[in-house]
Amino acid sequence: MATTLPLPLSDPRSAPSARSRRQKSEPFTKGSTIIAVLYALACIIPFWIIISSSLTAESTLNRTGFSIFPTPFSLEGYSMIFGGSARVINAYVSSVAITVIGTALALSATSGLAWVISRRESHWSRPLAIMTYIPMLLTAGLVPFYILVTQVLQLRNTWWAVILPFVVSPFLVFVQMQFFREIPQAVIDSARIDGANELRIFFTIVLPLSKPILAVIGLFYAVTYWNEWFTALLFISDKELQPLQQVLQIMIANISSANAIQPTNAAAAPIFQLRMALTVLTMGPILLAYPFVQRFFVKGLTLGATKG
């Protein structure tokens, strides 16, 4: 994907050869575009169904299971979720806090580790790689984890109980490591020759060069933190601190059960509609973050850095 080719990520006017090529759009390009667009539609359509269903009245929805057009239109699901208290607003705040802090910590820890592992000449590389890989296969299970967080670390009812357990994902460490390996050794060596120490190399050279992969890893962590509810459900009972996914899961689970168990509830809650509205609400903010991150997928990794 050279910058001289008329690809959207770079300025298409950069070279004369680019212009002439643009006129002659190859069948491969056309075919690929069509396939890509079709696939994108296949991804979008269920999403559209979810939004549409979230706006459809329960009376129709629970007969058909889903709806393609929101008729009869109904905002009852959303009003049930937002109405009544500031709980959902608080939940958004909690989720944002957890996601931002978590992603920042995770990116730092992961990048540092990935960089060390990627430097094969270091004798730390292999032991660290093994240390990182083992937890992908071996876990002690729920009970020791629970005891660790509640008894040993005393993190009940804090956001840290949700943030800390996911700070390093072995999978993402290896993905990032692979990208770090692509950085030419010559760049590093030329910096060393200039007298920089390892830490300076990392912060002033490696990180700026790695913006694409940092953006990707950061996005993946952000998604993980944003969607995390199970840990929150285990450890956070204080209503003020509950993140969004947990609050919405609670609402769904309890409304379903409340209808069954406690006959004093009058009207049946719109379960189908609520589930759909829940999905829409939880997806929203993260989707907004994604196009923003795309900006970082730019060329220019090693322009002019290599000497000798």
């Binding site: 820890a109 990048s111 580790l113 390093v168």
Partner: peptide, 14 residues
């Protein structure tokens, strides 16, 4: 090499 491993410390503790 001796300072490189510092970068890995947070993850190791984790």
């Amino acid at each position: 090499d001796n300072t490189l491993w510092i970068l890995a410390i947070p993850a190791v503790i984790f």
